[in-house]
Structures are given as C-alpha cells and as structure tokens.
C-alpha cells in the first residue's frame, strides 16, 4: 500500500489514474456489478414480475437439471459450436491463405469479404431466408436441377435448422477471422519458407510445418473467442428461426432470454446464465492448459 501511496504522490501517476477512471467506473458499473447481481439473484426467488429476494439456495440450479427444454438448449448450443467453430476457423484460414497470394483483384477482394461482417443481422436473416426458401429459393432450385429429389428444408427442418444457422454465421463472421489470420500470415518470416523449400518440403509440408505452427498463437486466440461468441449467439437465431421448428434451434442464450423476459423468471434465467458462464470458463481453462501441446510462441 505504501508504494501505491508513494506512486500517487507524483503528478503523472495521479493524472494517469484520472485517465483510467472513466473506463474503470464504466467497467465496474456495466460489467462487474451486473455480474455480481446475476450471481446474487440466481440464489433468490425472483421468479415473478414483482421483485422478491428470499434466499432459496441452489433451487434454481437444481431445477435446470429437471428442465428438458433448458438441458436440450445447452446441447443445442454445444452442437452449434461444433459446427460453427471448426467451420469458421478452417474456412477463414484457407481464405486468408488465398488472399495472402498476389492476384489481380486482391485489394477489392479483401474489402468485399468485409461486407457480410458489417451487414445488419436482420437484413442477413431476410436475404438467407429467401436464398434457402425450400419452395422456390435458388439453392433448392439448383439442387433440383442437378437431380436431387428431396433437397433439405434448411431453416424449416428440425434436423437442419441449427447447422444452417451455424453456417450462415460462419459466412457472416468469417471476415474478422480472415483479417486476423491474414495479419498473422504476413508476419511469418519468408526465410523460413525458403529454408523449408531448400530442404525439399512441398507446399503441403510447408503449410503443415511452417505456416500452421507459426500462426498457432493467432489460431488459439481465434478459437477461444469464437467458442465464447458461439455460446452467446442470440441475434441470428432469434431472427432466422426464433428457436424453431419446435425447439430444434432453441440455443441456451435464446432460452435464457425467453425465461427472463417472456416468463419473468429472472432468478431462474440468471441461474442458467451462470451455468453457461461456468461451462465457457471450463472450456476456456481446458484450452488454456492444452495450448502447450500445439501453440508455439
């Protein structure tokens, strides 16, 4: 404490403190306080419109394990992540590799891939609904042309709705990942490739033994953030299917929202959110521990 006090004696330190204060206050007010509040209300019985703060221990948490819809929503989120994260990581890596080469429309192409990323999610939902319309959308018309009799129902099918949403999200979010990968690829020293080539490594071996290890810190960062984002995905599910058909694409964030704002079960929704937080935390810790095996700094 003494050192802090000593530090604050200088003008510079005090000015510095003043400068970080707005962020700090904002962070406390909008991040830390709501988080603590969510933890608090998950242990009380605020499950009606009228606030009620009687401590009920783990009841809200126990209830989740008897709630088929909530449990299936966690599974749905998990499946979504399993499609979305590999999809977005692999495709963005390939796309970044392509964009890293020299070709005619390179600057234009680099700009174009950003378009979906900045587009409004509702507009995207409308456009994809038209494209994937199972009755007379262009995709199924094409599939019919090449002789597929029963093309998928896409967003309208029980088994296809969730993967379809995941793929639409891959399409939308690929730009960000691609740009980060592109920056990482440009940071790989050219002499490493030259050395590998001299040693007789072909294109595939150069990617496997030079590129992938060299960009692994970036890959690690992108995997962690995409997993977190994919568990929190709400807007696109809401606008594409609203969880349907039935509950086939009702992911956990949608379920939490409905519990809180349609049924006014705030405590129960908070408990589901805390469980989601713990799941994401565990997955992130596992990845953090596992990075030693494949991330090269």
């Amino acid at each position: 404490m003494r050192s802090l006090r000593a530090m604050l004696r200088t003008d510079e330190a005090r000015a510095g403190l003043l400068f970080v204060l707005p962020f700090f206050i904002g962070f406390l007010t909008f991040n830390i306080f709501p988080l603590i509040y969510a933890i608090f209300i998950s242990f009380v019985d605020y499950n009606t419109l009228k606030p009620s703060f009687n401590f009920i221990g783990f009841d809200n948490f126990v209830r989740i394990f008897h709630d088929h819809i909530a449990l299936s929503a966690y599974v749905k989120s998990f499946i979504y992540t399993l499609v979305y994260v590999p999809g977005v990581i692999i495709l963005s890596f390939l796309l970044a590799s392509l964009l890293n080469r020299k070709f005619y429309f390179r600057p234009v192409s680099r700009t174009m891939i950003l378009v979906p990323y900045v587009a409004n999610v509702i507009a995207i939902a409308m456009v994809w609904s038209i494209i994937l319309d199972p009755y007379d959308g262009p995709v199924n018309a094409l599939l019919n042309l090449v002789g597929i009799d029963n093309p998928p129902l896409w967003l309208g099918g029980v088994s296809t709705s969730l993967p379809t949403i995941a793929l639409i999200n891959v399409w939308q979010n690929i730009a960000f990942q691609t740009i980060v990968f592109l920056a990482a690829l440009q940071g790989v020293p050219k002499d490493l490739y030259e050395a590998a080539e001299l040693d007789g490594a072909g294109r595939w071996r150069r990617i496997k033994h030079v590129t992938i290890p060299m960009v692994s810190p970036t890959t690690f960062f992108l995997i962690i953030t995409s997993i977190i984002n994919s568990f929190q995905n709400y807007a696109s599910v809401r606008s594409l299917t609203n969880g349907g058909p039935g509950v086939s694409s009702r992911v956990i964030s949608l379920n939490i929202y409905e519990e809180a704002f349609t049924y006014n079960r705030y405590s129960y929704a908070a408990a589901q959110a805390i469980i989601l937080f713990v799941i994401i935390l565990i997955i992130t810790i596992i990845q953090w521990k596992g990075q030693k095996k494949w991330v090269h700094y």
Binding site: G244, P245, G246
Partner: peptide
C-alpha cells in the same frame, strides 16, 4: 398463460410440418 401459449406453438409446429 405465457408458457402455455409458447408450448402450444412449439409443439403444434412439429405436427404442422409433419415431424410429430
């Protein structure tokens, strides 16, 4: 009533699209 309404919609939808 709100839950009842959502349940009716979620389940009926599966019948209406031939899944149940």
């Amino acid at each position: 009533a709100s839950e009842y309404s959502s349940i009716i919609l979620q389940e009926s939808e599966l019948y209406l699209i031939g899944e149940k």
